[in-house]
């Protein structure tokens, strides 16, 4: 429990670095966690070589979902879309620096799901948990 609420989580939750909405953008995607109503949207700018040059997230939800979104968005600056598509749940756990129980892991993975759905250009009904397994 104490692990879960390490300073980095509380700090990123209260004052995220990458909260916002990029306009114009090349990629936009949004989705909800139906269990708790958390919402995440991402906007990305991608250059001709397929490299993420700028990224932001917006939404609302618990500290875990919002802080992991902030950490995730930070980590993809300068990555190629191919690298983004290859991200999975282990990468998010590594970013957080600790493992979560199965319920809270869902909170942490919402932003990854949204990000990958955007990178693949999926429609909302095509999004499933398989994306982040």
């Amino acid at each position: 429990m104490d692990d879960l609420y390490r300073e980095v989580i509380i700090e990123r939750y209260k004052s995220p670095y990458y909260r916002g909405h990029l306009d114009p953008h090349d990629i936009f995607f949004e989705d909800d966690n139906p269990v708790c109503g958390d919402h995440i949207e991402i906007t990305l700018r991608v250059d001709e070589a397929g490299i993420v040059t700028d990224a932001a997230f917006d939404g609302h939800g618990c500290s875990i979902s919002q802080a992991s979104a902030d950490l995730l968005i930070e980590s993809i600056h300068g990555k190629s879309l191919e690298e983004v598509k290859a991200l999975n749940k282990e990468d998010v756990i590594e970013l957080l620096g600790f493992d979560l129980g199965p319920v809270r892991l869902k909170c942490a993975l919402l932003s990854l799901k949204v990000l990958k759905a955007g990178a693949y250009g999926l429609s909302v009904d095509e999004v499933s948990d398989d994306l982040v397994e």
């Binding site: 879960l4 609420y5 939800g61 618990c62 500290s63 875990i64 809270r104």
Partner: peptide, 14 residues
């Protein structure tokens, strides 16, 4: 204010 229900429930669980 400013604290999500999930976080409240999690800390209470502790």
């Amino acid at each position: 204010e400013g604290i999500h229900p999930h976080d409240i429930a999690q800390i209470l669980d502790g």
